[in-house]
Amino acid sequence: MTDQAVAGRRLAKQDNRLSDEMFITSLVAGAAVALFLLASILVPNFFQFQNVVNLVTNNWAVISLGVGVTFLLVSGNFDLSVGGIVALSGVLAVWFAQATDGANALSSGWGMPTWLAMVCALIGAMSIGAVNAAFVVALRVPSIIVTLGTMMLARGIAQVVTQGSQRNTNLPADFGTLGNMTMFGTSIKLPVVLMATLIFVAVFVERKTVFGRLTYLIGANPVASRLSGVDNARHVVKLYLFSAVMAGVVGILLASEFKSGFSNRGTLMEFDALVISLLGGVAIAGGFGSVIGMFFGAIILATVTSAATGLVLSPDWQFTLKAIAVFIAIMAQTWALARRHAG
């Protein structure tokens, strides 16, 4: 056989293989399943359907935040402000909804109807996203520094509004409805259903829409995307606003669930959202990754942490385990991709 024919056949074979992204996503999904099975063997009573459901339902908030964070990472930008926004929007929603006639400062608010309070809280969340966008796009400050700043800004405002603690009195009766509503006659709550919907919509947007396509292009090669007529700046602004709104919704739902606006809520959620994205194969350099991968990344993290507590490790192990998991994930992905491209 001639060399060319061999080369041709090899190229054809390469074409039939999965794209790098699908490859990594399947790798992550496989790792998630393998970890779950491993945990089932090692931990008594782990292998239950309810446990699988719990892995998702207990993590709806972080997974929802992970969507915005993943989109931004794919476009080549960080968002570490989401945890702060969760606290801010929850606190604002409660504050706006509290009746005006409270006994003290922490029990009186603006007396808005619940829906209006939530809309206004969402606007507050969005304004943090706008600050992110302004600093990253207009001033070109590195996104890691900007969003560390807005993380503190958002949480700082929440702390001022709650005087460093929380607001949970004098709320309208319907304030707790959204966060505690169960769906379809099961125990599954509305936020979980919303998260599932968000995942489906996000996967659709990412895979099937122009918006999703542009996000990848900007992350993959910002110079070429600009010369190809993409308005990079405007797109990144949209992504920051989207991420902030998602975080705002999460914060409001959590506030509704607990009927309180707690200034320390969502602490480290930005970190977990980043961790699950990285576990899910999203590349920090941009242009690579997927929402599905992030979802399985969340499953991996949840399995590791919940199995660890099942294995009679103290909850104190969570930080160490997260560090090890991210390290292994990054090394494995680098190694897998390098091998694939060499082969």
Partner: peptide
């Protein structure tokens, strides 16, 4: 390679980039 192409994307993904909305209806690709 650095300004014209997205080297890590497939040929078919490169071709429509300058007029990407032409291949979409209501934003759906």
């Amino acid at each position: 390679r650095t300004q014209g192409l997205f080297t890590e994307l497939a040929i078919r993904r490169n071709i429509p980039i300058m007029n990407i909305r032409k291949l979409a209806s209501f934003g759906v690709f």
